[in-house]
Write a protein that binds this DNA or RNA. Structure first.
Lengths: 194, 194, 194, 194
DNA sequence: AATGAATGAGGGTTCATTCAT
DNA sequence: TATGAATGAACCCTCATTCAT
């Protein structure tokens, strides 16, 4: 890769990070190209040098966040430990993303509404892969006898839904710390699987 | 109430139902006044005879759906039966709304992003009330010894989150029928509370 | 004239008075048919039974106020007294209208901008007639030797302009009472003519 | 100041001049953004690159004209000569604006009706300053003994009103030339002050 | 690689006007 | 006579997008 290409990639990421910030605050529709550019002391015209259009930028925001979360989850999965220990780590990872990256990590957003035809497939694939990591650990637990589940898929959906929902009501100033919350969630999730 | 007022109320509801359809399909931002009006063979100007502005209309869509769901839940709560029986009914009610009224029932939508200052308070109040109905049944079960929960609030959040999440992946053509799904969900939720 | 016609005329005047109030407060463009009707506990549709359209209503507002002022001025003119005494009375009359009926009496409003082709002629005629009443008294004074003026028309314009301007800065709570103001104005106007 | 800033300022002024033309012809309410843009062979969207909204543009039209007139008046004031000579020049300046810039120079327009809260204060300040320049010359004349006035403020108001009124009836094709008119007006105004 | 400037489509909103009842 | 309801044209404004420089 040439130096100039590297530079472009770096700039792209800068823009993405800025865009993610704005989108987390204002939502996909509420975020404007102008505002995203302003955050970086650029003009909106320049964004089009790096991204084809707004849809593309939004898509890559979602992708970046989701990919990062996926990577962390994969790290969790490959660490030593019982299925329960791994699952607990994954819960912490997911909840952190759900809280810190609100909108861009928001898996509830209807992709067919937000993204165009080319983008839908990769998004769905990524989401499916992300979900499957939870399936992995559940299956592993079942295999080792740690977990029991009549319908593991349903359990995974309950787990994901419950965790995504946190962003709706979590407040840093609330009664519980994030850590306590994660603890409780993990406990209940394990309970579902025992 | 005068006849004319009844008529206007009826028309308002007609519009709301139409708007709810559109919003469920396209989201709050994606829905246009023009499209909503067209669905009713009206012109968008006419909508302003019944609603102050788009924000007002969107707000009332959300309110209507949420109020209806609340009413059904309250009926469930007042019926005879054990806490478990009641909770199972409530789960069915909620899941039905989550699936059928996707966007307008979407409790995840950030109200501070979508609604204006006057609207936020009633929305939050309504949502809080809705959630509290689940608290009621959980507490009732704990009182009768049917349920056990160290942190009932957390359980309620897990329950709500899990159910709201369904709209994300449920497909009528899927492997399970809606009824089976409801059954499984209820089972797992009860398990959390035993 | 039939009774029903009389009734219509009476209602028309009611509407006009209401409209005049609104227009004085909000200006011709700022006044809406809805607001005018609301003041009378009517609906805007009803206004069209009495007036062809908004332009017509606005036109008649202006006409009514101007005609009333004209009548009062004519009364002044026909009273006994020296030209100076008459002119002083007319100044009082005019200033009262300028202050109390702000917008509708506003002779500065460009008629070609506000009124349509049919309306312009009568408006201009009325305004011209109104102005001529001041010419009358000035000429009368010149004839009796009370007044002197090289260009009586110019004087009349100065007089009218000065008086119309009052509405711009007059405040009921100001340093001078309306009566003092009228006194001073009259003094200076007489001075112009001596 | 950077070159780009200069350029933008120049364009802004171009737009303002165009807008002033339209407003003088159609009034503030009658002027549309579309028409203003069309005059410059632009699209209305482009206007929003230079002005926040229509209110802002209208406000700046008024401001520009009033500021220019103020500057000219100040030049008049600082020239050599007796108070009478200065006042005569000022009368000429004012009458020219009143005739040439009709609507935008129209000091009669009720600011509270036309402008928003932020704009009102500067407008009133500017108008007050403009008026005060006439006070200055009157006071100067009184100080030197050239003029006499029991209530100089009233005189100033008569003067301003009389001059603003001109735009109402002046026609280039009339009996008198603009110059004769200015001459007569000045004569009468001086007479008021002697 | 970035920008300034312009565009144009589209959306929300207002409001005078109409018309059946 | 009066109204309720609907219309549609006109307007302001936003914003993603383009393109010459």
């Amino acid at each position: 890769m040439k130096l100039s290409e590297k530079k472009i990639l770096k700039k792209k990421e800068e823009i993405l990070l800025s865009a993610i910030t704005i989108v987390n605050r204002k939502g996909y529709d509420g975020a404007t190209m102008e505002e995203i550019a302003a955050e970086l002391l650029m003009t909106k015209g320049s964004l089009y040098y790096y991204f084809k259009n707004k849809g593309d930028l939004m898509y890559q925001c979602h992708n970046l966040v989701l990919s990062q979360a996926t990577k962390e989850l994969e790290v969790n999965l490959n660490e030593e430990g019982t299925a329960e220990e791994i699952l607990r780590k994954m819960v912490v990872t997911h909840i952190n993303y759900a809280i810190e990256e609100k909108e861009t990590f928001n898996l509830i957003i209807e992709p067919r509404q937000m993204f165009n035809e080319e983008q839908i497939e990769p998004v769905l694939k990524l989401r499916k892969h992300y979900s499957s990591l939870f399936d992995n650990v559940i299956e592993k637990g079942i295999a080792t006898g740690e977990f029991h589940a009549k319908e593991p898929i349903i359990v995974r959906m309950i787990v994901l839904g419950a965790m995504n929902w946190i962003q709706q009501w979590y407040k840093p100033t609330g009664r519980m710390t994030k850590e306590e919350l994660e603890q409780y969630f993990a406990d209940y999730i394990i309970k579902l699987l025992k």
